[in-house]
């Protein structure tokens, strides 16, 4: 088995080739150019174009992220004109997709921890969080693990831990969570399908 086509998908044209003014039969040879105003478009033209899918409703609109070749950051996101469903168009949320990137100063960037009875978050590292969470999971699970129910039937379950979410992450992540929860023996398992 050979799966080599991974990584980025580069789109031809600036932000999709589907709709362009020239397709209206308009000649766009510049008669005058104002270099300053062309800055962003030029950046888009030279950027890496990466396709993605909108993360809000379930229509599955295509978007194109323009990524700066030098700093690796996304600086523009708009509709994918080649996408058969949205054909480049986007609603208010989709059009604002860019504001979900790190450009949004509210994004979480640190592991945060709040100790019992604490009044603030503290910054921690991944090692602390992962080992502490694993310890809590095991202790909670082991303490009241239900081997057999009231009728004496074998149930091998943990009723003291709940898992919720998520329908706004990728399929592969969903599967991981579904499987992890079952292996832990959880039964309180749910996500946004009901809300």
């Amino acid at each position: 088995m050979d799966v080599t086509r991974r990584g980025f998908l580069t789109i031809t044209g600036a932000v999709g080739s589907g709709i362009a003014l020239s397709s209206l039969g308009i000649n766009l040879n510049p008669t005058r150019a104002y270099a300053k105003e062309l800055n962003k478009m030029n950046r888009v033209r030279t950027a890496k174009q990466v396709t993605t899918v909108c993360c809000y409703c379930s229509v599955g609109c295509g978007l194109i992220c323009s990524v700066d070749g030098i700093n690796g950051k996304i600086f523009n996101i708009e509709g994918d004109a080649d996408h058969p469903i949205n054909e480049g168009s986007l609603c208010a949320k989709g059009a604002g997709f860019f504001d979900l990137t790190e450009a949004n100063k509210h994004r979480l960037t640190k592991v945060l921890y709040r100790k019992p009875y604490g009044t603030e978050w503290e910054e921690k590292d991944w090692d602390f969080a992962l080992s502490r969470i694993a310890r809590l999971v095991k202790d909670t699970r082991d303490k009241e693990f239900v081997k057999r129910n009231a009728k004496g039937e074998l149930v091998n379950r943990c009723e003291t831990i709940g898992h919720y979410g998520s329908s706004n992450v990728d399929n592969e992540e969903c599967w991981i969570m579904s499987v992890k929860s079952r292996a832990l023996g959880l039964v309180y398992i749910d996500h946004q399908a009901r809300v």
Binding site: R6, V50, T52, V53, C54, C55, S58, V59, G60, L63, C65, I74, I77, I85, F97, L100, T101, R107, L108, T109, K110, V111, L112, Y113, R114, K115, P116, W121, A129, R132, I133, L136, N168, D170, N171, E172, E173
Partner: peptide, 19 residues
């Protein structure tokens, strides 16, 4: 005891999504 773990946004990771 609370943990808040920072996650990548949709366009910061590879994977599939079903409409």
């Amino acid at each position: 005891e609370c943990f808040l773990l920072p996650a990548s946004a949709s366009m910061e990771k590879e994977g599939s999504q079903s409409n």
